[in-house]
Computed example of a mutant assay.
Amino acid sequence: MNWLNELKVAFLNKNDNKINELLDNLPTLKTRDEMFEALAIFEEITNYAKEEKNKLTNEMRKLKQTKQFLPKQETSHRLNISF
């Protein structure tokens, strides 16, 4: 399978590790069609990354709000189980 097809499959499967691996090993694209196709895939991957970043930002905000809502413990009690 050629590099562009591997990138498409990785993107469709949302395989972030494979996408990163392929982008780290970007080959020299020889034809104009390959370049335009790669550009289109890069745009889709960029949009996907932005969406994932926004999801993560929202989750972090929710966690922060939950942490602020929960009562703070004044002292933490630890068990010392040493023999």
Rank of each mutant, 00 (worst) to 15 (best):
F36S: 02
K67L: 12
I19Y: 02
F11A: 05
A10P: 01
E74L: 12
D33T: 14
L70F: 12
N80R: 14
F83G: 14
D33Y: 11
E43V: 00
N15W: 07
I81F: 12
D16V: 07
F11M: 10
T66H: 14
Q65G: 00
E74K: 11
E21G: 13
F69W: 13
N58I: 15
N5Q: 15
L56I: 13
E43I: 00
E6P: 03
K30L: 06
N80V: 15
Q68V: 05
E59F: 14
K62D: 15
F42G: 01
T31P: 09
K14H: 07
N47R: 02
T57F: 12
L29A: 02
L39E: 05
A49V: 01
N13S: 15
L7D: 03
E34A: 04
L70A: 13
S82M: 05
K50P: 08
S76E: 13
N20L: 07
L23H: 04
N20Q: 13
E74I: 01
T75R: 14
K30Y: 06
I45V: 03
A40D: 05
L26Q: 11
Y48T: 01
N54K: 09
S76Y: 11
L7G: 06
A38P: 00
K53H: 07
F36M: 08
N58W: 13
R61N: 11
N17G: 12
N54A: 10
E34S: 06
S82H: 08
N47E: 08
P27V: 07
N80I: 09
T75D: 15
E74N: 05
Q73D: 14
P71A: 01
F36N: 01
S76V: 09
T57A: 05
L70G: 12
F69K: 08
R32W: 09
F83E: 11
N54W: 07
T31Q: 13
N47P: 03
M1K: 13
W3N: 02
L79I: 03
L63S: 11
N15C: 11
I45H: 02
L7R: 00
I45T: 01
L39F: 10
T57K: 06
S82Q: 11
A10R: 01
R61T: 07
L7Q: 05
N25T: 06
I45R: 03
K18W: 01
E6N: 11
F69L: 10
E43M: 00
E59V: 12
L4M: 14
M60E: 15
N13K: 04
T31G: 08
L4A: 14
N20F: 04
T28S: 10
L22I: 05
T57N: 02
N2R: 12
L4I: 14
Y48L: 02
N80S: 14
E74H: 13
E52Y: 15
M1E: 12
N5H: 12
N58P: 13
L79Y: 07
T46V: 03
D16R: 03
K18S: 02
N20G: 10
Q73I: 09
E37M: 06
V9N: 09
R78I: 10
L23K: 02
L12V: 08
H77V: 15
V9F: 04
N47A: 06
F83L: 14
E37S: 10
